[in-house]
Write a protein that binds this DNA or RNA. Structure first.
Lengths: 342, 342
DNA sequence: GCGCGCACCCAAACCGCTTTGGATGACCGG
DNA sequence: CCGGTCATCCAAAGCGGTTTGGGTGCGCGC
């Protein structure tokens, strides 16, 4: 079933059928109706490959899975972010193409991706502070939006990020306000931009409160429950253990809670905990209206929707200055925080 | 940079350049070398849209994200499965196209997907026992492989699944062997095929041991930590509480452990727990060699690799009978199980 | 009655690649 | 010297759409 066969069955030219289907004005209403009816009846759908060869638009967005070596951790945020983004794409008729970027020659990989014309735009995730992909992409002429930021990148580029620094400063301030002075930070991997910003927010708020930062209380690691558990266990054993914890993910927080309770301490009384919550669908912070942890919250899925919309508009207006969007984290008061013990 | 311009710059015809680049035999070795060098030097990459229009192969595989209404849970297994699959695809030069399937007219959605010729094959996930998508796809002429099975589908189709029934029977048998007679099953959503099979395995092993199944001890819900916690808490409050738990995911298990410990009981002594572990990269069962829970384990990422390979071979040999592959879960002995208290 | 504008429709070129079916010479055996 | 074989190369016809640049016929104003 091609445009040509459809046209023949109607006694029309392919041109007219194409124009009828694509909403051009120079087709008689009656003809258009007839064409649409026939298309539906015969189950005609234009071949997107042919169409995009002709139009030059691929109607697809690339999402890059960063070079996952065989045993590396897949970003758990990925699924919900994509689910959100795809809502936006689907509404606009775009598909998602996932590209796995091989480890070594990233630059060449992105260059190939851009040349291939398989996609109209690119969404980058999990940037590092000195991420070189951004400068690279800027020169490639392929619209893109970054989920997160690369702090050391000076040139303007489009991004959507949560205000990590402010969220963690606020969380820290909340804890110092409750009288806590030894506040541990169990952060994500050191190389990630978001982790850097969270650490900065934490440090700034401590400084504000006149508290010296104890490097022994700050950890950077991939965010698993086990990490939270082992770190909290080790910290609990210190001569002067922390009275409060700040964690970069719910999984870490769950591990901390386990260690705390195992040590016979009560969360929210003996020890306080504030976590960041990405709002992942399969990892809720308790139940709606009944949170388990006091948390800063910025739903990743919604950010996916937003980032996708930004990208689509960047594709529609290529010469606009790149937009940026800073999301404020929501504050969720839960039962895991309380006045510092004395 | 098109094939034509490259050919002109070399004083050759597009035909010859194409054949040189694609490894045909009727090109002089010297010519081929010259063409390859020029292609590299000028950064030529064939336009995949044009290529696939000409060849009829899209060099892309479709993965369908099941109709996520706005707040539904995104399958957490998704990310690791795709990461595994994409390793296989990338090695064979295939891309992944994600399609979000709208809720209502699934049939029409799959039909459109097949007609669109945007993909060469389809990978289906999370089937239900009576999943109608399979019969639908069988008639569509698009190669596909199912991750999981649809128990009520009689016609042959390609699938790769873990032996859910056997794994849960084994886990249950392990517990009855330890003297447990009240074994709760905290399963995934009732509508899922895997959950049905797990429940069947559990029931069969109980029957074997001459234990009557108590329906009050079996729950089906989306697999979150909170579900594990609330369910275990409720069960612990029963007049005759269960002495052992079987859970369908690590998140549920973590919730159960919390409830257990909160009740002042010790896991592995007062109460036993066996969980299934999908081997998700960001949700490890403890550390390597140091598991937290006794578990049945079947790494989803590896299954993604396998399923992708099966699909590629189904695409390569369309008239072969569909292959199936049943994965045996590994048994991991952890500290969460022990003899039943008496 | 004529020229013009308008509403419709279409032929043909094109997007960038693959593939079929030769064409062209060089070389070789008889 | 000639037909046949072999190694190379290429023109042209698709693949299935979109788009440019006209046609054609009709109604209308003057």
């Amino acid at each position: 079933m091609t445009l040509r066969t459809l046209a023949e069955s109607l006694g029309l030219s392919p041109t007219t059928v194409s124009r009828a289907l694509n909403g051009y004005g120079d087709v008689a209403p009656a003809t258009r109706a007839r064409v649409q009816a026939a298309a539906r009846a015969q189950g005609y759908a234009p071949n997107p490959r042919a169409r995009s060869l002709a139009t030059g638009r691929a109607m697809a967005i690339g999402h890059v899975i960063p070079a996952t070596s065989r045993h590396e951790i897949v970003n758990p945020v990925f699924a919900d972010f994509i689910a959100g983004a795809s809502e936006t794409y689907a509404a606009a008729g775009y598909e998602i193409v996932l590209s796995v970027m091989p480890e070594g020659d990233e630059a060449e990989g992105y260059r190939r991706l851009a040349r291939s014309r398989r996609i109209d735009g690119l969404l980058l995730q999990a940037p590092r502070p000195d991420d070189r992909r951004i400068a690279l992409l800027a020169g490639l002429g392929l619209p893109y939006v970054v989920h997160g930021r690369a702090s050391q990148e000076a040139a303007p580029y489009g991004w959507l990020d949560m205000d990590n620094r402010r969220a963690f400063a606020r969380a820290t301030r909340h804890l110092t306000g409750l009288g806590h002075r030894r506040i541990a930070l169990l952060n994500g991997p050191a190389g990630m931009d978001f982790a850097t910003r969270r650490a900065a927010g934490h440090a700034a708020a401590l400084d504000e409160a006149g508290i010296a930062l104890d490097p022994a209380l700050v950890r950077h690691e991939p965010m698993t429950e086990f990490y939270g558990y082992t770190a909290a266990r080790a910290l609990t054993g210190l001569a002067v253990p922390p009275t409060a914890y700040l964690t970069s993910s719910l999984l870490i927080a769950m591990g901390v809670r386990r260690a705390i309770e195992e040590a016979g301490l009560r969360l929210g009384h003996d020890v306080s905990l504030v976590t960041h919550d990405d709002g992942l669908s399969y990892l809720p912070n308790g139940a709606p209206g009944r949170p388990l942890f006091t948390a800063t919250r910025a739903p990743v899925r919604e950010m996916g929707r937003e980032a996708a919309a930004m990208l689509l508009s960047a594709i529609a207006e290529p010469r606009r200055a790149p937009r940026t969007r800073l999301i404020e984290a929501e504050w969720v008061e839960g039962p895991s925080t309380g006045a510092a013990p004395r």
